[in-house]
Amino acid sequence: MPEMTEYRPGEPCWLDLASPDGAVSKRFYRELFGWSSYTLTQDAYGDYEVFTLGGPDGPTTAGLQMLADPDQPPTWTVFFRVDDVEETGSRVLAAGGQEVMPPMQGMHLGRVAMYTDPEGADFALWQPFGREGMEVLREPGAMCWVELASRDIEGARRFYGEVFGWRPVDYEYYRSAPYTNWEIHGDHVGGMVFMDERWPPHWVAHWIPYFWVTDCDATVWRAADLGARVTIPPTDIKPGRLATLADPTDARFAVITPDLTFEG
């Protein structure tokens, strides 16, 4: 499989799962996607689990750490590549976002900071010192898409345009409402779906990762057997067959079997 060695500013480059039970999360994703993992240990930061594809020495796919605050919900956080964490963080605040974790050293690997957008969707910034991010992308068992669920589409378009320079482009993937693709220089970096009245009213705006699987239905059945909750059952849309789930700790994610003939 080709390995990713470089990401451009504004592209999603890493995923981090904050879990209240690391053992449960590690077992679930290892069994669901066939991941392996290894542990990074530094006294100042605590243990950090790194998931890999194709064995412990395989390319990295995501990270896992314990929730710092037990009152916070388990969540997958999407990291976006930037050239300067402080400068991009200033744009986040100027555009109406909130700082969750100020810029800091991410061990010896880079600089990191965490924010929420004006609706409360959390995300992170990553300025690498050599380690760009996920070493495998858009392959079975790896991340292939990130998506923002928002109730304020126009506000999100403005915010992320000001922060990352993204251009929103609407596509008719669903019958009910247009779907927004975020683009940089004509390349897709993620998407946005409108949270209409069919969404649970207590759900706040959020980012989720999509993982490529070869059989959406079989993966969903397997996930349910492993303790996941299905929030959207396998559904056909133009880009492929997808489903959304909450893992055994209630962190949300999606799986998709892409339609490789689709162009959009």
Results as ranks from 00 to 15, higher is better:
E3D: 07
Y7K: 02
R8S: 14
G10A: 02
E11G: 04
C13E: 12
L15Y: 13
K26Y: 00
R27Q: 13
E31I: 07
F33P: 01
G34A: 06
W35A: 08
T39A: 11
L40S: 01
T41D: 06
T41C: 01
G46E: 02
L53F: 08
G54S: 02
G63F: 08
L64V: 11
L67T: 03
A68T: 14
A68H: 13
P70H: 03
P74D: 10
W76A: 11
R81P: 02
V82K: 02
G89Y: 10
A94H: 02
E99P: 08
V100H: 10
P103N: 05
M107T: 13
A124R: 07
L125H: 09
Q127N: 06
E132P: 00
M134Y: 06
E135D: 11
V136L: 03
M143L: 01
L148I: 07
R151M: 00
R151L: 08
G155I: 12
A156S: 15
R157W: 14
Y160H: 08
G161F: 04
R167L: 12
R167A: 14
P168S: 11
D170H: 08
P178H: 02
Y179P: 09
Y179D: 05
T180N: 04
W182D: 09
E183R: 12
D187W: 12
H188W: 02
M192D: 10
M192F: 11
V193Q: 10
F194R: 13
D196R: 05
W199E: 01
F211V: 09
W212N: 00
C216E: 06
C216N: 07
T219S: 15
R222P: 05
A223D: 06
A224T: 07
R229H: 06
I232A: 13
P233N: 03
T235E: 06
R241F: 01
L242G: 04
A243S: 13
A246C: 13
T249P: 01
T249C: 13
R252N: 09
V255S: 00
P258T: 04
D259F: 05
F262R: 11
G264T: 12
